[in-house]
Write a protein that binds this DNA or RNA. Structure first.
Lengths: 222, 222
DNA sequence: GCCTGATTCAAACAGATGTTTGATAATACT
DNA sequence: AGTATTATCAAACATCTGTTTGAATCAGGC
């Protein structure tokens, strides 16, 4: 018993909040359980009691926020697909990009903090972390890749998915580094930037036999 | 005495090589000096003797490779600017992107390893590291931003610099995550992608008064 | 030869780390 | 009521961390 089965006090939430902040500020390894439990005003043993280990705590911190972000993305995508007309490329990209940007620039610093953790997760190639996240993220990325492929029917889906990696990189980097600029402006720029980039794909008619083996990010974190 | 003043045996080089590998594999904090010195077959105290501290070793690992990469970039940019005709946007972007991609996909795994460290440096917002790198990188980024601004004379330089952040993000992410695909193909795609994105900048004529305060990545690591 | 500086080495230092333990307090159930 | 489960707590566990020390070894100059 012990792990996972509880929903009682604010202890586990307080741990998650403080851990999220400290992970973003100092990194996973550099943040000690004593630091977390002290700031959260809980006992040192509470982390191992409620989560099982430090590693499990890291994963828990991620899943909590990622669920919200991806839900927002998919909600916007569903809304797009519900209408009769096929969605424009810009609209699909906007559904993917804007929720992330908006979340990052939330009034409190929560979003910005979390996005720096996300960038860290890309850097730290932590096997457990990737495994935990891929189960959630894979679904989302597949749906967006499919929606984009539908707006660019002439193009190879693998190629599109590779380009999507560019967008993810630009988005992640921008979210982690950007200051307190106007989030709407940033989202506008990135959507336009990405749409133009995708639109510049050469037509497959003159495509020579090139390998698209492409073990890109898609297979690692989504 | 002690620090920095030596160039004797292969001890310091052996430490740098092993440290670079382990930092890329496990991160800075997760890599211990005992691990490094054991793999390098040198004494534990050698790191503190030759570099002064673990932090100084981290910086040293970076500077060694970054010098080579940025030199290659600037050499290609100079070559471009030397010709009479003003360079095309794609050519400037290529001079920035391709050396990084090629270096990342070097025959040995050195390049790929190092690029994962670089991504880690973006994630870990280490003050000392940023300070050490900015002194070198700032020069390079300023020159490329200027060259790009010259090929897009109508546009606001601040805006261009912000777009350059998108490219850096896409490049860094791609280099850190991409497998053993064809590097030339990746560079081609990214250059075309970036050029199209930059080319889609709206003309300043209809530019409303929007702030471009933009404390982007440029000021942090270059 | 001897001496001087630079380098290596084994050992110890002082602390921080994640995790476990066993007791204690709080809560829920019957 | 009383019993069982859940949660919190202080303390200790074993291990790892970066750094320092002082003696041993090597180099080259005189």
């Amino acid at each position: 018993m012990s792990h996972l089965a509880t929903q009682s006090t604010g202890t586990v939430d307080r741990i998650l909040d403080v851990a999220e902040r400290l992970f973003a500020e100092n990194g996973f390894h550099a943040t000690s359980l004593r630091q977390i439990t002290q700031d959260a005003e809980v006992n040192l043993a509470a982390v191992n009691y409620h989560f099982g280990s430090k590693q499990a705590l890291i994963v828990a911190v991620f899943k909590r926020r990622l669920d919200a972000l991806n839900s927002a993305r998919l909600a916007r995508l569903d809304e797009l697909l519900a209408s009769d007309a096929p969605p424009a490329l810009e609209a699909v990209l906007d559904a993917f990009v804007r929720p992330a940007i908006v979340f990052t620039h939330a009034s409190d610093e929560t979003g910005h903090r979390f996005m720096r953790i996300l960038l860290r997760a890309f850097a730290d190639q932590d096997a457990d972390l990737h495994a935990a996240l891929s189960s959630e993220y894979a679904h989302v990325m597949r749906r967006f890749a499919a929606a984009i492929a539908e707006t660019l029917p002439d193009h190879c889906p693998d190629r599109i998915r590779r380009q999507l990696d560019f967008i993810v990189g630009a988005l992640t980097h921008t979210m982690a580094e950007s200051g307190h600029d106007d989030p709407g402006q940033i989202a506008d720029d990135l959507v336009r930037f990405s749409a133009a980039g995708l639109g510049s794909l050469p037509h497959p008619s003159l495509q020579t036999a090139n390998q698209v083996g492409a073990k890109g990010t898609l297979e690692i974190v989504r």
